[in-house]
Design a protein around this nucleic acid. Structure first.
Lengths: 254, 254
DNA sequence: CTCTACCATTTGTCTGACAAATTAGGGAAT
DNA sequence: ATTCCCTAATTTGTCAGACAAATGGTAGAG
């Protein structure tokens, strides 16, 4: 392969430029909060026009890699990527894959169960009192009969996110982000009609007590029961969707 | 909160437009492979200029949500998001977080161990012969003394990715993508000098045999030993970095 | 010394234009 | 009649210049 021919320039200037800058950030040649040259200067450096530079910067802005401000002290700055930003990116990607049917609900439920079981073991050792209190607060919320279904689901997500957080491992939290923030709502949307909210709150409380006592095995058992119940309800929902005698399930498409 | 004041238009037109289109895709109002209007028509619809539309489209292109082609049958099309694209996004985000020091190496190692242990149990039941063969091939590669360190690490990553794949759960695979594709190379870069390659290949083979026999517990045990050894070597590397008597570790910054 | 008004700088957006790519269709040659 | 090539049309990619909006600094007035 002695062929290069000057690097195949047929891929779009903006794309190449954005990748150059992205690599510079990833490799640390551009420090966080460092201000990069003005758009005009960048255009001169790369020998392209300003709109092209702007398109390249937009690509990076879409990934939250840079931020821009107007004014004399303004300009384009390298962003410190926050965990929440990363979580959002992962959640979006996961949501897309779900909506395209790349995952089955059974896949999602299983992945969630396995990851959360891991978290239960770790959280039993490492949970803080604050995290315990946050879980208790969600349980209290979930007991409110006036709570809307959507809010109940949101509370459910927050509860389980707190569980993962209580495992005290940011890397694990990152890995779980996609499954929790995006996949669980998908599950909820399908089957929340069939979920007994009091039962859910009860199981949550059982889990909470186990973590309070730092009893990892009890926590795992509680979670397993919870997930098994969820799976039963999911199968029930699936059966009804397969043979929809009564329009019990509201159509997803409005 | 009776305040809205027409929705705060101070966020950038391109951003708003890209979010509108993104939501349309996520909610299924735009089908995959559907062609959306030409840039000119979009500009007219949104009452903005074409560069603004282009900036919005660039943001979406950066997320692989759309693709563009020139020509009469060209235009902008909705992309079917592939798992590899998603994996790439997650890996990039993870790499960024690692380079910013959001995760410690201990976090990463633990997350990897926990997730892979889960996969071991599932893979013992579900692994296909093809996956088994792929693992064997990697082991054969890893036994080659002429293999470069970088290639050895790459083979290591592929081996473990196959393990996750053998668990037969796409959602779990997605969750593990960040930890495997991006975090493990980071680990390898730090400590690969200290890893006994024959030892690694041996442990891999032990894992391979356990999966071949569909023995989940043996697979978990093999992986645990492997990860514990890795952790020991990591601590050794860390100690050397803390007190660098000899320049055994090449600087990362060249 | 403090506050206000102006100003310079930088990004955000617009207008208009041309270049490049790619397909459709017509015309010519076999 | 069929096949090949060439031209034209359409759409994105890039460029150039300009003005608007925001924002922080600074000079001047009280």
């Amino acid at each position: 392969m002695a062929i290069d021919y000057q690097g195949l320039v047929t891929q779009g200037l903006a794309r190449q430029i954005s990748e150059k800058i992205r690599d510079a950030i990833l490799e640390g040649r551009l420090q966080v909060h460092e201000r990069l040259p003005t758009e005009e200067e960048l255009a001169a450096r790369f020998s392209v026009s300003r709109p092209t530079i702007r398109e390249a910067l937009k690509r990076l802005a879409a990934q939250n890699l840079i931020r821009s401000r107007r004014g004399p002290t303004g300009g384009t700055f390298v962003n410190r990527p926050s965990r929440d930003d990363a979580r959002g990116l992962v959640a979006t990607a996961a949501a897309l894959l779900v909506s395209m049917g790349e995952f089955t609900l059974a896949d999602i439920a299983e992945a969630r169960q396995q990851i959360e079981i891991v978290c239960c073991g770790l959280a039993a050792q490492r949970r803080t009192d604050e995290q315990l209190a946050a879980m208790a607060e969600e349980i209290r919320l979930q007991r409110d009969p006036a709570l809307l279904d959507a809010d109940f689901c949101a509370s459910d997500v927050r509860f389980h996110r707190t569980l993962v957080e209580a495992a005290g491992n940011p890397a694990l939290e990152f890995a779980a982000a996609g499954v929790l923030d995006s996949l669980q709502p998908a599950v909820n949307l399908v089957i929340f009609r069939f979920r007994d909210r009091r039962q859910v709150a009860l199981q949550h409380e059982r889990l909470h007590r186990a973590l309070e006592a730092r009893n990892g095995e009890a926590a795992c058992a509680a979670l397993t029961d919870y997930m098994n119940a969820l799976r039963r309800q999911y199968r029930k929902a699936q059966a009804l969707r397969a043979a929809p005698v009564a329009p019990a399930v509201g159509g997803v498409r409005g």
